[in-house]
Design a protein around this nucleic acid. Structure first.
Lengths: 350, 350
DNA sequence: ATGAAAGCGCTAACAA
DNA sequence: TTGTTAGCGCTTTCAT
């Protein structure tokens, strides 16, 4: 009775003694069917354990009831967390999701995009960066609902989910400042990623707003990986004058930094404070637990799906591109504290 | 020119001045087409940027060229790593992959399975546990290629990828033993998961083979999460006599254990050694870096796809279920060392 | 309210 | 070698 099978609509119709059209109406909840017949159909469906063929439905209706979700890297825990939110909200709205991600060389995006188009997705959420301009033009021409995180690299009707990087990062800088830090370094993400650039800019602006001057030597080029975080610290410890706090463009970077700091015998937060970005679940389990700037996956996912749904409804109406803000907030854990007393002789604490 | 679009085969045929059948032959690489015509077709395909509709292809051919991959939890880094391997090998073989995972309550498997069937996947790799027996029976009846990790919960032609848990865990126990430990605890995974049970059994057997006796009080019930690892350590520190080494059923558990150990001031490995399982990428970045038992995602993924492909070819021939072994091996890092001098009674330090 | 029939885009006989 | 045509499983007019 719990059988999953490959029964076709015709067999159901035969068993119920009705036409395929009636079966179709019943399975699609079209109300103009006689209660008695509908019941017979439902019984037949149950008995044969009929499940409509999705390909066929999609083919005939032109609707796949699928959204595409393109992310950067599957192995950054931030994304699995985002995927779960996205998928669960999509399912709630009757959609499935087709997942795509980019490989180490940022390849693959195009392949996945094509696959998504071929599968006739009804919208694509691009939670990644560095897509070819050409591809974006195509997407625009296809007039397929589209939502970007951070920024739409090309103008069109696409929705952009604007992450309030500045808010959280400013909060972090203030936190550090109030702890007594004035020497703050930053490990950035890949320089060609919009989100990484936005984070760096937010940091620079926050520094300025806190009355601090940025030191170019303290801006390290990371790549949003654990290894990148390690490498940046390795660079840092070679410096004559070093920051007393290090902010990282994402949590993976911060975890890598933590590792290298431990390896060279620098205590966190006693010797140096570290702040991450993303607030992945793991951030509460590092040693020490990571102070980090969180952005809600749920908000991101919901914002994306809402936008896709809205666009799908209003695409032909020429609705203007909407945009919504994703909030960020500092989560204080144990990787930040007052700077060491003699931090190169020039730390003022209050 | 780089346009992705929704042109149909008819428009291509018209532009190339041939029949749709010829276009179909060309796009599918069927060689019986005149070179000149084929060329014209290819030009038209390019000009219109034609991409065949996958739904339609699947519908008519009965072949979706898709494999299903069902995993436990997306948020355990082991799985994203596995997914990448699986997908990349699948693509190499001309297949796409449809992903499914289970939510916190082990729900969802059934939904994804149904979706996979509806999408007419040509095989399913089940890298998870605790599926309902009823569902497995159905799968068997469907005669769809099937591969399980660890064990096939029901007899059929399904391939099982047998992980050599004992080998790696035995190696770990020996490692601990040679370091001088004889008091070894174990944090297990969910008791209803086959793989968790196998890991625990392998530990028990290894202990015996190393001439050690298991202490029931040192077997903690974990759940393969960070939180579970923390909770187990919390239990452990309440014990009168405590182990000098703690093996964990997976890396997430070990990381959780590390966290709680740090919180209560126990140093790793000086006061207590910790060993994980899986060797996720992150294991090299914990504090201290985690000694753990690795199993290759690549081997798992390749084994699964090979099996699926083989079954697809020979299903109707009634080929017997094959099975292949997945190797495991200890990776020694810094979370293990000799036990503390006074390794009896409560370990007090500092 | 129900059914017959046309077709969604494609492949695979079958003809030519 | 190429084209014609009959569906794949389903939805959706259009009659009834």
């Amino acid at each position: 009775m719990s059988q999953i099978s490959r029964i076709s609509i015709r067999e159901v119709a035969a068993l119920a003694g009705v036409s395929v059209a009636t079966v179709s109406r019943v399975t699609n909840g079209i109300s103009t069917v006689d209660a008695g017949l509908a019941d017979r159909v439902r019984r037949a469906v149950k008995e044969l354990n009929y499940t409509p063929d999705q390909q066929a439905k999609a083919l005939v209706s032109g609707r796949s009831r699928t959204f595409g979700l393109l992310i950067s890297e599957l192995t950054n825990p931030f994304f699995p967390e985002l995927i779960q939110s996205f998928e669960s909200i999509a399912v709630t709205n009757g959609y499935e999701v087709l997942l795509g991600w980019m490989d180490a060389n940022n390849n693959g995006a195009r392949t996945y995009m094509r696959r998504m188009i071929q599968r006739k997705v009804e919208g694509i959420a691009v939670m990644t960066f560095g897509l070819e301009a050409a591809m974006l033009r195509d997407l625009n021409e296809l007039k397929i609902p589209l939502v970007f995180m951070d920024a739409a690299p090309v103008k069109g009707w696409a929705t952009v989910l604007e992450v309030e990087y500045y808010v959280g990062i400013h909060e972090a800088v203030l936190h550090l400042r109030s702890l007594g830090h004035s020497d703050i370094g930053f490990v950035s993400g890949p320089r060609d990623q919009t989100s990484a650039k936005l984070r760096l800019n937010a940091f620079l602006a926050s520094l300025k707003d806190a009355g601090l001057k940025p030191r170019p030597a303290w801006i390290f080029q990371g790549d949003h990986t654990l290894e990148g975080g390690m490498a940046s610290v390795q660079e840092m410890i070679l410096l004559g004058r070093q920051p007393t706090a290090l902010m990282c463009s994402n949590d993976l970077t911060a975890i890598g930094a933590l590792r290298m700091l431990a390896r060279v015998g620098r205590r966190v937060p006693e010797d140096i404070s570290v702040i991450g970005y993303d607030d992945i679940h793991l951030a509460a389990f590092t040693a020490p637990p990571l102070t980090t700037v969180g952005m809600s996956r749920g908000q991101l996912a919901r914002g994306a799906i809402d936008a896709l749904l809205r666009q799908a409804r209003h695409l032909e109406l020429g609705e203007p591109a909407s945009s919504s803000k994703i909030q960020t907030a500092l989560v204080i854990r144990e990787s930040t504290s007052r700077p060491p007393r003699r931090a190169k002789g020039r730390t003022r604490k209050r």
